[in-house]
Structures are given as structure tokens and as C-alpha cells.
Amino acid sequence: MSGAELYTGPIIDAHHHVWEPRKHNYPWLSGALLVPHRYGDYTPVKRDYLPADYRRDAEGVNIAATVYVEAEWDPADPLGETRYVSGLAREHGLPNAIVAQAWLHRDDAGEVLAGQAAFGLVRSVRHKPEGAASPAEVAAGRRTLMSDERWRSGYALLERHGLHFDLQTPWWNLAEAAELARDFPRTTLIVNHAGVPGDRSPETLAGWRAGMEALAARPNVVVKISGLCLPGRAWSVDDNAEVVATILRLFGPQRVMFGSNFPVDGLCASFGEIFDGFRRIASSWSPAEQRAMFWETGLRIYRPELSDANRGMPTA
């Protein structure tokens, strides 16, 4: 890999949110409730965050398109979230693609998937598969919904609707995710938040690395490098360089995307600080490799509908 200067080309932000928790029901955001979160106290993000706020945070970063990821809106109304975000996209020109909510083990999974696929911007769905809450539980034999036959029946419908699956699960469940990717080779599995690598201790990173190696062996798996904050710490290259470099080595730039996870990652750093950190870590890669990571992979996987201002952006 040849040396290169910091990337300055177009960027697809493959993971962000917008919301109005006082207007709509997000059980974890609306009201005074605080649920356990890997970043700790997330009170500062329990506020409206709209496209104008996103653009203000991203000012100075060459964002050409964005991908909205479901934000745990009221699970009784998954289509309502997609309808709301689609309306924001029409009005504001972003987001340019949507990862929608779908509970794959529910009786209405088929109906919900068909409904989500009917929206023009929906490319994928997400459902955090509850299950093993620690490495010890995995060692004791506990599995997640990824191994539940009813949930898998819902997952099997994704191919019919041309939908990907965005997976967010702790690192200790990644080997199980690799089995899921193996069993459904025609469905693209998008690993969120770098596989949630945890506290960066040598023992944790060794377990995370093993899971990511298993996933990398499956050609239908891609990874979003996002959500890398550590509770109580500012985002730093030192904390994240090994994680990012490992992902790039295992998957290659054609299977890696970058995401801001804003506004949530704003708890630990500014938008510019996070993306500048990513650029610095990736700067040893060639210009073509950097372009693949920051632009081409997201373009291929999420097929964003570019706004009028960005229609002149290159497509390859």
C-alpha cells in the first residue's frame, strides 16, 4: 500500500440519525427514561436533531450523501418512522438512503418488510437481535435471535424484497453472525459500529478480532466503521487506529464504509474530529483505496439517491 495524503474527495456518511423525540415516540429518547447505553449517560442527545443540525455539525466535511439508520422508534409503528424520514428527505435533500426498522420474529414481519421495501429510499433493515449479554453467556451456550428459527424465517424474506440487513450486536456474538451470513449467502449483512469492539483491552480485542475474521471469510459481509466512542473519553486516533487498521486489513476497502453515528457520537467528539481521525488512520492507503472506503462502497451498497446539488458526483 502506497502512502497518500489525507482524503479530500466525496464522502458517504453511511450511518446517522435524525429525530424529534418530543414529537414522536422513541422509548429510549422520549421522556425522562434513560436505558443502559454503551456510552453511559446520553442525556445530551435527547433533543431534536434534524437535517439542518446535521449539516451544521458536518460543515467543512465533504459529505455528498447520507444514510439514515432506524433509531428505535415506537416498535408498534415501524412504517411510521420510514414515512417520517422520507418526508424529511424530500424537504431537505437528506438522508439519501434509509435503513428501516423491522422486527423479524414478529407475526407481521412479512407485511412490515413488504411495506418498508415499498419506500423509495429503503435499502436495508435493522433489528438488534437480543441474546447473550456477555462472553460468559456465549461460552455457556446462550445464543441470540440470529439462531432462532422464527427470526431466521423473517430474515429469509429479505432476499425476496431486495433488502440488506444491518446488524448491531456486541463483539462476542460475531461468530454467530458469521454463521448467519454463511446460511444466507445472497443477503448482504452490514456489520454496524465496527462490530462493537468494546473496551480495547488486549483480551477484548483478541475476541473481537476472532469474530471479525470469521465474518471476513463471508463475501456477503461488509462493515461500517462507526460508533467507536469509549465512555468518558474523547475520540482519539490512539484508541481507534488498531480497530480501523484491523478492519481494513481483514475486509479490504471495497467492503468497508465510514459512518458518523451522529448525533450520538457527538457525545465524545465533533463531527470534524471523528472524520479527520478516520482520514489520518487511512492516509497510508492509496488514493484509490481511500476513495473506495469513503465513497464507492457506500455508493454500491446503499445506492443513495443523490440530491440535485450532488448529482454531478462520480458514480465509480
Score class of each variant (00 low, 15 high):
62 N>R: 09
225 I>A: 02
74 D>L: 08
163 L>T: 06
240 N>F: 08
261 N>P: 00
305 E>H: 13
91 E>W: 02
139 A>P: 04
127 H>F: 08
62 N>C: 01
92 H>G: 07
41 D>R: 05
120 G>K: 11
139 A>Y: 03
138 V>P: 04
250 L>E: 12
267 L>K: 00
178 A>V: 01
158 L>Y: 07
202 P>F: 09
190 I>W: 03
4 A>N: 14
233 R>P: 05
64 A>L: 01
316 A>E: 13
249 R>Q: 15
243 V>H: 04
256 V>C: 10
127 H>Q: 12
105 H>P: 01
162 G>A: 02
189 L>R: 04
298 G>A: 09
250 L>Y: 06
70 E>L: 05
272 G>I: 00
192 N>K: 07
281 I>K: 06
296 E>F: 02
264 V>W: 00
32 A>I: 00
83 R>C: 09
279 R>D: 09
227 G>H: 01
276 D>M: 02
5 E>F: 12
230 L>T: 13
250 L>M: 10
150 R>W: 04
223 V>T: 15
238 D>E: 15
219 P>F: 12
256 V>N: 06
167 L>I: 14
239 D>E: 14
289 E>T: 01
137 E>K: 03
179 E>W: 07
292 A>H: 00
105 H>E: 15
86 S>C: 09
14 A>R: 12
250 L>D: 09
54 Y>E: 02
142 R>I: 11
160 R>C: 05
75 P>V: 11
18 V>H: 15
42 Y>P: 04
285 W>E: 14
94 L>I: 08
167 L>V: 14
246 T>H: 07
92 H>K: 12
191 V>P: 03
5 E>H: 11
77 D>H: 15
41 D>L: 05
129 P>I: 06
310 N>A: 15
110 G>Q: 10
50 L>C: 02
45 V>W: 04
156 A>V: 06
30 S>K: 12
173 N>P: 00
93 G>P: 11
17 H>G: 14
45 V>P: 04
138 V>E: 00
194 A>K: 01
141 G>R: 01
17 H>D: 15
255 R>V: 02
296 E>V: 11
252 G>R: 01
139 A>W: 03
172 W>E: 02
17 H>I: 07
68 Y>R: 08
58 A>G: 03
3 G>K: 03
238 D>K: 12
36 P>E: 13
207 G>R: 06
70 E>M: 05
26 Y>G: 06
264 V>I: 14
